[in-house]
Design a protein around this nucleic acid. Structure first.
Lengths: 251, 251
DNA sequence: CGTGCCTTTGAAGCCTATCAACGGTCGTGG
DNA sequence: CCACGACCGTTGATAGGCTTCAAAGGCACG
């Protein structure tokens, strides 16, 4: 894997991993080019300014409070954006997968920390120059706005899930989200870029509870636990059904 | 109140309620004009297309699944953006207060429902024309992007709160947020535009739990319950302290 | 002035956090 | 290549918090 990363990093123009048509296209936006097109357009436009680097798991790309001097694009691996609650608990506000931009949402100081959770290929773009490029082309401005709004909708969808679903339902929801974003539908194994602990930080649960939820889903025949970070979704319907968990049929 | 709304609605150019410098300025973005300036600039630019209307509590401005044909700006009152979980529970993803834009985050179909929770003065802008205006001026594009990113940061902050705080802490956090956004600091009463039920839908709690949390805060001397929808913050420190609730000092 | 809806308070049950222990896996270094 | 150690994952027991079900009072509106 590291080998592969280095190969890519040494090229001037890193190869675009195939971007599935609706990668992370939360909120089925119709009537405008799909999100992947917006990402491609933006990437093409600012690629000349990009500096490609490889980062190992655990590396910090930026920290809360830093000056936001760069935008980033993830080519390979996985990156988490996290904040810390007053009690010190780390909370993951977003998981970045290959092909996605991040770090463009602040204009002053970073409001979150970006950390590599799976060896990554990261391209950084100086913010000033990137913004100038975006200013110069309204289509790029729309693309960037669409990307930001897509993330906003995703965050709001996650708010609903956190607020209204029990532990098993959240985990099931997480698996479906990962499967969809990684394009590995149904019977194909889902490669989880994160540990149980990190899933918990993402879902507002603790690692033990995540583990129990996965066990429950396995016993239910919804999933198969292959390796530590590989899960096969056996029954999408069972996953989706197990979602009205916390309460009885309120309606 | 209705009187006042109608007065405003009959004017061609509705009076801007005073916009506090950092109204809803989540994530202290430095190095760029504050959010209020972005809002003002955008509003001035698209005001010619605006259609001002008054809406009573309970009115629906748009519904999930509708075509997103308009952007909106709230002059007075309060509007909630809500989604519905599979079990039928309504969940409020965002509370819109006077001076804020909403409904600009979708390019295709609405992903949430907008409902008036407090008699409101709403200005609607045809999306096509508004986008054209934004396309024509990079400063406006930046302004709109800043607004969207600000909401993204706010949603992420709320994710952290939902995931890591107990009921009392969430309610305390909500009160502080409302106080800050409404600019009525500390000893001034906070006018809550919503019912206990709606606070619950916003915080992922039930109305009974919200009620109990408010009672707990009152007994603690942190707040004073005046009228049903008016609360006086007596002790901001006590509110902020009661926030590390759910767990023991994880660190 | 009556009727709803909102709010408050109580009691019981479920779910998740917490504390604890163990087995397994992965990475590191010899 | 193997051995060691640290970390991750699983499972159990217990406790606490929130939901749920239930009932009564109060404020607002017609």
């Amino acid at each position: 894997m590291t080998r592969q990363l280095l190969d890519l990093a040494t090229r001037d123009a890193p190869v675009l991993p195939r971007l599935p048509p609706s990668l992370g296209d939360h909120g089925r936006s119709a009537g405008r080019p799909p999100l992947a097109a917006a990402r491609s357009a933006l990437l093409e436009a600012i690629r000349p300014f990009g500096v490609t680097t490889t980062r190992r798991r655990g590396a910090q790309i930026f920290a809360e409070g830093d000056a936001a001097e760069h935008w980033y694009w993830l080519g390979l691996g996985a990156v988490q954006l996290c904040s810390f609650a007053e009690d010190g608990r780390r909370h993951i506000t977003e998981l970045i997968l290959p092909g996605e931009f991040f770090g463009f949402e602040e204009t002053g100081l970073r409001t979150a920390t970006a950390e590599v959770v799976r060896d990554a290929l990261v391209v950084g773009f100086p913010r000033e120059r990137a913004e100038a490029a975006v200013d110069a082309d309204p289509r790029l401005a729309r693309a960037l706005r669409d990307i930001a709004c897509s993330r906003l909708r995703a965050a709001q969808a996650r708010l609903v899930r956190l607020g209204s679903m029990g532990a098993v339902a959240r985990v099931a929801s997480f698996l479906l989200e990962m499967a969809e974003r990684a394009r590995s539908c149904d019977a194909a194994p889902v490669e989880l870029p994160v540990t149980r602990d990190e899933i918990g930080a993402y879902l507002g649960l603790h690692s033990e509870t995540v583990s129990r939820a996965l066990t429950a889903l396995r016993r239910r025949g919804a999933i198969e636990l292959r390796a530590r970070k590989s899960i096969r979704l056996l029954n999408g319907a069972a996953l989706r059904e197990g979602k009205g968990a916390r309460a009885r049929p309120g309606l």
